[in-house]
């Protein structure tokens, strides 16, 4: 409701801030945007080497490299969106204290820029899919709602983190630590079945686990996602979003004073 009004009024500003974020990156380095694709790619290669040749993860039905990539790409999007958003208000201190427009635009533009990165880095994944001849079914269209739920969840956390980081700059360092632990509590580099049964409840409460399992299910296995878990992830995301948005709006008037 208020989101739609916001978009219609500020979509051009959102577009400008997003393209500013994208442009500033490719202008600063020679390879520029290639890094966005190369980074997760090499990360995947190194991990695939370690886990399939040294540690020898058991057979997963598809080559480990593509199994890993299907989890690593959305995780990288989640990770980069949060680490970018947490600084989106602090990093725009100049604008924040001079001109008023709804502050969530900063968070949104950071998230959109990371979405562009994500879309580009998916290109190599598609090549992998073709190379390994992974059969594709109509179920792959589930990727769209899954991605939407992921972004809703990310947006909720981002709003909270961005505002909190203005008051205490430790939040950004704390976030890095939390994300590191979180990644190992999410089936990114392994499959859910490898986890001791008695701890598997963690995955039921972890929306990122639900989301990453769902991606793999619809892309690699060609099946339906677990709708019950996905529905839970959606509800959880909406709940957190409602709280985070309320908090964000409540402290918004103080942003210019504390920045």
């Amino acid at each position: 409701m208020s989101m739609i009004k916001l978009f219609s009024q500020y979509h051009e500003l959102l577009g400008q801030l997003t393209s500013r974020e994208i442009k500033q990156r490719y202008k600063q380095s020679v390879l520029g945007y290639a890094w966005v694709i190369l980074n997760p790619f090499f990360q995947m290669l190194v991990m695939a080497f370690v886990y399939s040749i040294i540690i020898r993860i058991p057979d997963l039905g598809v080559p480990y490299s593509i199994y890993l990539y299907a989890g690593l790409l959305p995780w990288t999007l989640f990770n980069n969106s949060l680490t970018g958003s947490v600084n989106s208000l602090v990093g725009n201190a100049g604008l924040l204290s001079k001109i008023y427009f709804p502050r969530e635009i900063f968070v949104m533009s950071t998230m959109l820029a990371k979405m562009v990165d994500f879309a580009l880095s998916c290109s190599i994944f598609i090549i992998f899919m073709i190379y390994f001849q992974i059969p594709v079914t109509w179920n792959i269209l589930w990727v769209i709602p899954i991605l939407l739920i992921q972004q809703l969840f990310t947006y909720a956390l981002s709003l909270f983190l961005a505002a909190a980081n203005l008051f205490y700059r430790d939040i950004q360092y704390l976030l890095n630590l939390v994300l590191l632990i979180w990644m190992y509590l999410t089936p990114v580099i392994y499959a859910t079945e490898f986890f001791p049964e008695k701890y598997q409840w963690i995955f039921k409460l972890n929306p990122m686990a639900i989301i990453i399992n769902a991606y793999r299910q619809v892309i690699l296995a060609g099946g339906m996602p677990n709708l019950q878990s996905l529905g839970l992830a959606l509800l959880l995301s909406l709940g957190i979003l409602a709280l985070a948005y309320k908090f964000f709006k409540k402290v918004e008037g103080l942003f210019a004073d504390v920045v």
């Binding site: 051009e12 400008q16 500013r20 442009k23 500033q24 202008k27 100049g94 001079k98 001109i99």
Partner: peptide, 23 residues
């Protein structure tokens, strides 16, 4: 209040005019 609050040093004058104008 402070001029050029939305300017970004890496962008060109032209890009900054659009950015700042829309801001």
């Amino acid at each position: 209040i402070e001029l050029g609050a939305g300017f970004h040093p890496e962008l060109t004058g032209r890009e900054n005019i659009f950015l700042n104008g829309i801001i």
